[in-house]
């Protein structure tokens, strides 16, 4: 998802009997659906895994501004431009809520950003694909934000208080993103033959990467089992993916667009859509840094950080000077 394949450090799942008294009390509180707050005792693995997961999520929000920012100056109308700017600004806000949640675990935002820029921290695979046409902005809102909501709604109930509260804020705002995307798609699909073809082309390119966002099947993964035990992962990757397919296919039907999957069909027995195999090799390649835009995304982020350094330093120097003067005057 926005955080994919998060390592937990666990080798296997342990039962309550095998845990230390502190850890056991901690697990019992999680099992009783009590929220864990930053200053309370927590296993080191829980703390580290959460830092990894929340920072990946934050990095995804920030890097996610790039493919959409690409179209702000070329939005087809002033109204669409204002809407897209508001949407991209929200993503910055989401990144900030999440960095703040991660910081409650005793790590600084600068450290997290340094890890991203050094290529040590991951962000979602989806943002390494290019936005070639205006229809891609529609497809991202509709599919990518749709998939993000699917993942984030259960996380509102996760065990870590600050993460859960950040997710609640994010989910309130995210629904606007999905709707503005679908609105772009509706407009294109009701337009000329070329405009509808543009919408179809965007769906063709974004559909499979959107399904990959949920990550590889993880039913047998020890990390996923550990995260589920800690209630920082609520549903499995495949469960979320299936829900997303079931909800999105009728929306494509409404638009009169065709999903780029010849094996996609309604399964009466299971009450779900069956879909074709996902190219996991492509996914792993993108995660490893070999997607169409990985290098470009990181380069732009690093440049923005370095070019902004003088502003951060000047603002701090100004604040220090004013504090000094106020002290002397007193």
């Amino acid at each position: 998802m926005y955080a994919q394949m998060v390592e937990t450090g666990a080798k296997r799942l342990r039962s309550l009997e095998e845990m230390s008294p502190e850890e056991r009390a901690f697990q019992e509180r999680i099992d009783a659906d009590v929220r864990i707050e930053p200053k309370e005792w927590m296993p080191e693995g829980y703390r580290k895994t959460l830092i990894r997961q929340i920072s990946q999520h934050a990095h995804s929000e920030i890097v996610g501004m790039l493919p959409e920012g690409n179209w702000i100056t070329r939005a087809p109308t002033l109204k669409r431009k204002a809407i897209l700017m508001a949407k991209v600004q929200d993503e910055a806000g989401h990144g900030l809520y999440l960095y703040a949640a991660a910081e409650t675990l005793g790590v600084s935002r600068d450290e997290l950003i340094a890890e991203l820029h050094a290529g040590k921290a991951k962000y979602s695979s989806i943002f390494n694909y290019p936005t070639l046409t205006w229809a891609d902005i529609g497809a991202i809102g509709w599919l990518v934000d749709g998939a993000a909501i699917m993942n984030q709604i259960p996380l509102c109930r996760c065990s870590f208080g600050p993460y859960s509260r950040a997710m609640i804020r994010v989910c309130k705002e995210e629904s606007f993103h999905q709707r503005q995307g679908f609105d772009i798609m509706m407009k294109l699909c009701a337009g000329t033959a070329e405009q509808k073809a543009m919408a179809q082309d965007a769906l063709d390119r974004w559909w499979w990467p959107s399904l990959m966002m949920f990550g590889p099947p993880d039913a047998d993964s020890v990390h996923s089992a550990q995260s589920a035990q800690w209630r920082i992962k609520i549903l499995s990757n495949d469960e979320l993916r299936q829900r997303f397919v079931d909800q999105t296919v009728p929306q494509a039907d409404f638009l009169g667009l065709k999903m780029p999957d010849p094996e996609l069909k309604w399964n009466e027995t299971h009450g779900h859509y069956d879909f074709g195999p996902i190219d996991w090799e492509e996914f792993h390649n993108v995660i490893k840094g070999n997607g169409p835009c990985n290098r470009d995304r990181l380069r732009v982020r690093v440049e923005a950080w370095e070019n902004g350094a003088w502003v951060r330093e000047a603002a701090l120097a100004h604040a220090q000077k004013r504090a000094q003067r106020a002290k002397q005057a007193a």
Binding site: A86, Q89, D90, G93, L96, Y97, A100, E103, R109, R165, A166, R169, E173, R312, A315, L316, H318, A319, R322, A323
Partner: peptide
């Protein structure tokens, strides 16, 4: 409602407006 980074109190209020009161 949350936290944020800012060089001084004045900037903190301005940033808070953008981060926490967009709606």
């Amino acid at each position: 409602v949350g936290s944020l980074h800012a060089p001084d109190a004045e900037m903190a209020v301005k940033n808070a407006r953008d981060v926490y009161t967009r709606r």
